[in-house]
Write a protein that binds this DNA or RNA. Structure first.
Lengths: 131, 131
DNA sequence: CTAAATGCAAATCATTTGCAAAGAG
DNA sequence: CTCTTTGCAAATGATTTGCATTTAG
């Protein structure tokens, strides 16, 4: 896991088994688990406290490796950080399309710039129905 | 406040002073206050409990009058439903700017259309920092 | 060895809920 | 008068933190 070693070096973090485990869980996950769920999965076969999971998620998020996905159900979910891109959600089926729309991305960036901000990321969720 | 009377009638809710106050605060707000903040503003001149604010926000949200804005700072923020518009969030200060960007809105709508969807709504959140 | 990381339990913070009292229709 | 709404305080649930102990470098 070179990326993690690299990251730890750069951020002055120590490369612990726990960070490996949490990152591995998120890498292999097909969903977006919350802290408790990550702990549940990590604790299966390892000795790891819930507080450690929270701390790890926080440091990895601060380090830019993870992104928080805040849905409105109270729990914070996590995913590997990556390219900001627009999503279109089919309101009828719940299906999510991740779009690759350069023009939108550029306009979004330009808008932020024109307001005097440097764009750190964005999330565009469009809700639509098939007519 | 005919709209509220109407709503209460349709939903079998009672038209109370508290619902009026909460809705009025959200209508006149230029920001997106959280429950505590709404309570703070409402309590200025009125006798209203925090629990009532929460209950009111929940029933108005369930009734479709309000929308929850879930940022990743732990608190849920509220706004009048229906207003799809882009937001830019200052990552350093937490300040939220609700933008009125026609060009973006149009492009977003066009994008959905070109994908064969009718746009029901969208949420664009941009995260930026002041250089 | 020394500072960072961990486990556990206690502490916070936002939000919800139980219950008796107050208010709308 | 009946049923909803409210206030207050206690309960919940997610996340954070204090502290003594362990561990990576």
């Amino acid at each position: 896991m070179t990326e993690l070693e690299d990251l730890c070096l750069r951020k002055g973090l120590r490369l612990t088994e726990h960070r490996r485990i949490v990152l591995e869980i998120l890498d292999s996950a097909t969903d977006h688990p919350c802290a408790r769920e990550i702990h549940r999965r990590a604790a299966d076969g390892h000795r790891i406290g819930l507080a450690t999971v929270y701390r790890t998620l926080n440091s990895l998020t601060a380090a830019g490796v993870l992104t928080r996905l805040t849905l409105s159900d109270g729990r914070t979910r996590y995913e590997r950080a990556g390219a900001s891109h627009p999503h279109l959600i089919d309101v009828d089926t719940g299906e999510i399309l991740a779009l690759d729309e350069d023009e939108l991305a550029r306009l979004i960036e330009d808008t932020a710039t024109s307001l005097g901000f440097r764009l750190v990321g964005y999330r565009l969720r469009m809700f639509g129905v098939k007519p």
